Amino acid sequence: MIAFVFPGQGSQKIGMGVDLAEASSAARQVFEEVDDALNQKLAQLMAEGPESELTMTANAQPAIMANSMAVVRVLEDGGFSLSEKGGCVAGHSLGEYSALASVGAFSLSDVARVLRTRGIAMQDAVPIGVGGMCALLGADLEKAEALAEAAADGQVCEVANDNDPTQVVLSGHLQAIDRAVELAKEHGIKRAVKLPVSAPFHCSLMKPAAQRMTFALNDTPPGAFRLPIYSNVTAAEVTDASAEKDLLIEQITGRVRWRESVLAMQDAGVDHFVEVGGKVLGPMIRKIAPDAKVRSVVGMDDIDALAKEV
């Protein structure tokens, strides 16, 4: 069984989607539709930069989704249906929205606008300089949780992403994150690296953003979806649109349980993971499920190869 998975923030880069748009009218239509929905030349920003502007959360989130959905549309244009070929979908953080759009839960215009709101809400939730994040390399979840507790010292320091057996991300107050970096080796963690982020995502400091997303998703809730989705929050299969809406709100402050999600998909019979529009999740999945087949589909050659083989 195939799972189609979608990357999250951090996978953006200048030039993303350019080759696809040059090769396919279906891809160009995606970028045009997103530009129209946002009343912005996002495709031009993706193609030309500047990188500092593309990296801004409010731009990166819809850009990454647009890139993934361009791949989906090119596949569909060639007669390849994710819903027919796959058994489930999942996405890492904002990638969950791309996954939902790929199976019909959101229109392209709606998901672009929702992600723009999400990006602004997450950016505005905490003043710049108050929060931070760090990646713990060579850390499992148990070590990461112990470090977070030791570093908190009355502030927020929480596990934000359980990515794979060797990589966990912490999020919280900047001083607590600095303490975590200093204390990492004492906790048997190989290395701790501060991340160049503008806000402390996926921790309790994001509550104001969750409140704003409650309004946004009440106005534009996900509809029915053609394949089950594995939620970041529960690492379990979801088939009900109303339940998924609540989980998307909870996702803002909740942990991204990616490692557990991959294991749950594998337990359900997934033996082939296809990353749509990025090359970030593949290396994580290989560490979590070394026996599974893993591939990334980014350009036309990847799309052609997938269509021939699956």
Rank of each mutant, 00 (worst) to 15 (best):
F106L: 05
F106T: 07
F106H: 00
S107Y: 13
S107C: 09
S107N: 11
L108A: 10
L108V: 05
S109W: 08
S109V: 10
S109E: 09
S109H: 09
S109K: 14
D110Q: 07
V111P: 00
V111M: 04
A112P: 12
R113F: 07
R113N: 06
R113M: 06
R113E: 07
V114F: 13
V114K: 02
V114R: 02
L115A: 05
R116D: 02
T117K: 14
T117C: 15
R118G: 02
G119H: 05
G119K: 10
G119L: 05
I120H: 08
I120V: 15
I120D: 14
A121D: 04
A121V: 08
A121P: 07
A121M: 07
M122D: 01
M122V: 01
M122L: 08
M122P: 00
Q123P: 00
Q123E: 14
Q123W: 04
Q123C: 08
Q123S: 14
Q123I: 12
D124N: 13
V126W: 01
V126C: 06
V126H: 02
V126F: 02
V126I: 10
P127M: 10
P127A: 10
I128L: 10
I128W: 03
G129I: 07
G129Y: 06
G129D: 10
G129L: 06
V130S: 09
G131F: 00
G131H: 03
G131C: 04
G132Y: 00
G132H: 02
M133G: 00
M133Q: 01
C134P: 01
C134E: 07
C134W: 02
A135I: 11
L136I: 04
L136H: 03
L136K: 00
L137N: 06
L137A: 11
L137D: 01
G138D: 10
A139Y: 03
A139R: 01
D140A: 03
D140T: 05
E142T: 08
E142L: 08
E142H: 12
E142F: 11
E142D: 12
K143R: 14
A144V: 09
A144K: 06
A144W: 02
A144H: 00
E145K: 13
E145M: 13
E145N: 11
A146M: 13
A146D: 14
A146V: 11
L147W: 11
L147K: 08
L147N: 05
L147T: 08
A148S: 10
A148K: 04
A148M: 06
E149G: 11
E149R: 15
E149C: 15
A151R: 13
A151L: 13
A151N: 14
A151M: 11
A151D: 15
A152S: 14
A152E: 13
A152I: 09
A152V: 13
A152P: 09
D153S: 15
D153G: 15
G154H: 13
G154A: 14
G154P: 14
